[in-house]
Design a binder for these strands. Structure first.
Length: 297
RNA sequence: GGUCCGGUAGCUCAGUUGGUAGAGCAAUGGACUGAAAAUCCAUGUGUCGCCGGUUCAAUCCCGGCUUGGACCA
């Protein structure tokens, strides 16, 4: 059985996952795009060393911050790990806030082999409109699902054609949009918005107390912040601070705001993209999983 | 006590030569297949500080009051 603990950031997912793994013979897999990186600790709200020892954790802390990590890389590792845990006849507990990563691992998403060194530089000077009409000419079906202003997606759809020789729409049509595992349960932690925002604000405050500034400062001295690892909330907001444009207080408020915005997007994703069962408290979620495990026996 | 400037959306403010108002941010809803903590889309009714006057019509003009700030005593 696979249980996915999802829901917004700061809702208590990690702690619940540990309890479930301990009580129901489970192992935990990270389902979060930024907790995969080494050295990013406080800002990613990674489980502490003590917590990591309370249950078996996988896919935390295994990617170098300079490496470009993608959904496909995650998918490969996650599926491998899921299969290993299942073969041990243990409960798989996936926990994290990145819905896309979880979906890509559990559903029949396929990523086609890409040619390297494909030149896309001719696209850079094009306006959004020009780029979009170019995509329409290449893959009209895919273009219908992308807004012309969403340059990143438009570019990606064009890149797929150049790098794989296949159309994005064709790749997706070849899939059944079904889960590739049996007995998968998405359990979402639902929190009243006001309460969640307070938790987020408090958590950012305690990140600063725990030494976030020191962590980010030493990373900034060591690495190029253009790497994807530093595009995460709690890291990218420090760039204007290091450049002398923002105060520390402004940086902190920005992190809080971005985290709140992010939490809202997470609700939308988990609400509409997967068959999530929502629980109003940690206890309720725990009991729900307990019921599933007992029924399974 | 006097002079001047301000009080308009949750916040910062714009505006209406008089016809009951709009930006940014926030907030809310949504999309999501190789950056996803990313990227993108949609949504603006608010006693225009209060009371009165002028007017067909006042948030706008006039008077008073209230309130914040600056300056002068």
């Amino acid at each position: 059985m696979i249980v996915v603990i999802c829901g917004p950031t700061a809702s208590g997912k990690s702690k619940l996952a540990i309890r479930l793994a301990q009580d129901f013979n489970g192992e935990i897999i990270n389902g979060d795009a930024f907790q995969v990186y080494k050295e990013l600790e406080i800002g990613t709200a990674k489980p502490t060393k003590d917590e990591l020892m309370m249950a078996t954790h996988h896919l935390f802390d295994y990617v170098e911050p300079t490496k470009n990590h993608s959904v496909m890389d995650y998918q490969v590792e996650a599926r491998k790990t899921i299969n290993e845990i299942l073969s041990r006849k243990k409960l798989v507990v996936i926990v994290g806030g990145t819905g896309l990563y979880q979906k890509a691992s559990l559903y029949d998403y396929t990523f086609t082999e890409e040619k390297e060194n494909v030149d896309l530089s001719d696209l850079a000077p094009l306006s959004n409109e020009e780029l979009y009409s170019y995509l329409v000419s290449l893959d009209e079906k895919a273009s219908l699902k992308i807004h012309p202003n969403n340059r990143k997606r438009v570019l990606r759809a064009i890149a797929i054609i150049r790098q794989t020789g296949c159309k994005k729409s064709e790749i997706e049509e070849a899939q059944e949009h079904k889960m590739i595992y049996e007995d998968v349960h998405f359990v979402g932690l639902n929190i009243n918005r006001e309460e969640l925002y307070k938790k987020i604000n408090d958590r950012v405050d305690s990140m600063f107390e725990e030494g976030l500034v020191e962590e980010v400062t030493s990373l900034y001295e060591k690495y190029d912040f253009n790497n994807n690892a530093f595009k995460g909330i709690g890291y990218k907001e420090f760039i204007p601070y290091f450049e002398g444009k923002n105060s520390l207080e402004e940086t902190k408020e920005l992190i809080k705001k971005n985290t709140r915005n992010y939490a809202k997007r997470q609700f939308t994703f988990f609400k509409h993209q997967m068959p999530t069962i929502w629980c109003d408290s940690i206890e309720e979620a725990y009991n729900y999983v307990k019921g599933l495990v007992n029924k399974d026996d």
